[in-house]
């Protein structure tokens, strides 16, 4: 059932965009980038059982490192992107080793501080980052294998390939040894430790995978918007990702994707004044946590399947750590 749905959606995403105007194509690309970010947060909340308010810091590091390598050193996008991802993984591993032994609120606090530190560095390391103004005129990715990525549509397809490949890779990881151990950890960390799970190592691995996915979103943001600045990578962006995950559905991979679509298009359709967006996010966070523990995905499952369907490994809803 969900496979058919996924195939239909994918076919639509492949075939329809050439018929759309360039703003619509841009919106779709933006949704894809947000999908990556939401997936990265979803992995953390749903499988590692932690919230990272500094997730946007990972995104920012990837965006800045990749763009600076291109602007300052003339390195091609295709080389700069993997370097940026490696940098993000390194930072994530370091952060993880230091902080993941802290539980619940302590971990959250340190991630908050991490996010702030990244923002402060981006805004104040004037010589390198150009301060609060940020970087401008970031070019589309250079052509590769005869494919030109200069157009909005070509970039859209690039983002689509990255998002689909990431989703598939995460689906595999979630069912792998690491994914299953992470689910056990999320269910009961103390018990997991005493049946032999190396808790810290698994959590650091989980954080690193999540950081790679966030980094993928980060390297795409520069070319998509052509401008990056510290203001894009604040705790607000992290909370946006969190809202996408909670509204979409915790502990699933389709949840963050659906949440991203929902949260990019709803304000677009309703034309909320910009200043009301954070209030809306806060309200959605409370309402979804209280009344929609399975998120939109859980709601759809409940409507489609009336009994007989086994809950999947990850269908845990919001659980405590």
């Amino acid at each position: 059932m969900s496979r058919i749905a996924a195939a239909v959606v994918l076919a639509g995403l492949l075939l329809i965009p050439p018929a759309l105007d360039s703003y619509q194509v841009y919106l779709l690309s933006l949704t894809l980038v947000w999908s990556l970010l939401a997936l990265s947060m979803g992995l953390l909340v749903g499988f590692v059982g932690e919230i990272n308010f500094g997730q946007a810091g990972f995104v920012g590091i990837a965006a800045y490192v990749s763009s600076l390598l291109r602007i300052d050193f003339g390195i091609s996008f295709w080389l700069a992107a993997p370097v940026a991802l490696a940098a993000v993984v390194l930072v994530a591993a370091l952060i993880g080793v230091i902080t993941l032994r802290l539980r619940g609120p302590f971990f959250v606090l340190v991630t908050l501080a991490f996010g702030e530190i990244v923002r402060i560095v981006l805004a104040n390391w004037q010589d390198v980052t150009n301060g609060p103004i940020g970087l401008r005129g970031i070019a589309p990715p250079e052509g590769l294998f005869g494919i030109d990525f200069a157009g909005k549509l070509a970039f859209y397809y690039l983002a689509l390939v990255v998002t689909v490949a990431t989703s598939v890779a995460l689906a595999v990881i979630v069912r792998s040894r690491t994914g299953r151990l992470l689910v056990a950890l999320r269910e009961d960390e103390l018990l997991a430790a005493f049946v032999g799970v190396a808790v810290m190592r698994q959590k650091v691995i989980g954080l690193c995978i999540s950081a790679v996915v966030a980094g993928l979103g980060g390297v795409l943001i520069g070319p998509l918007l052509s401008v990056i600045s510290p203001g894009q990578f604040t705790i607000f962006a992290s909370v946006d990702m969190l809202v996408m995950v909670i509204v979409g559905g915790v502990g699933t991979l389709s949840g963050p994707l659906i949440g991203a679509v929902f949260l990019v298009y709803v304000p677009e359709v309703v034309q909320f004044a910009h200043e009301y967006r954070p209030v809306l996010m806060g309200a959605l966070l409370i309402l979804a946590t209280m009344f929609l523990p399975g998120g939109l995905v859980g709601l759809m499952r409940a409507m489609v399947a009336r009994g007989g369907v086994r809950p999947s490994v990850g269908a845990g809803g919001v659980r405590g750590g």
């Binding site: 059982g49 619940g104 959250v108 909370v239 969190l242 966070l285 919001v318 659980r319 750590g321």
Partner: peptide, 12 residues
Amino acid sequence: RGDLAVLLVTTG
């Protein structure tokens, strides 16, 4: 419903 849920609603 655990720490995470409280964290989410109070953040909201």
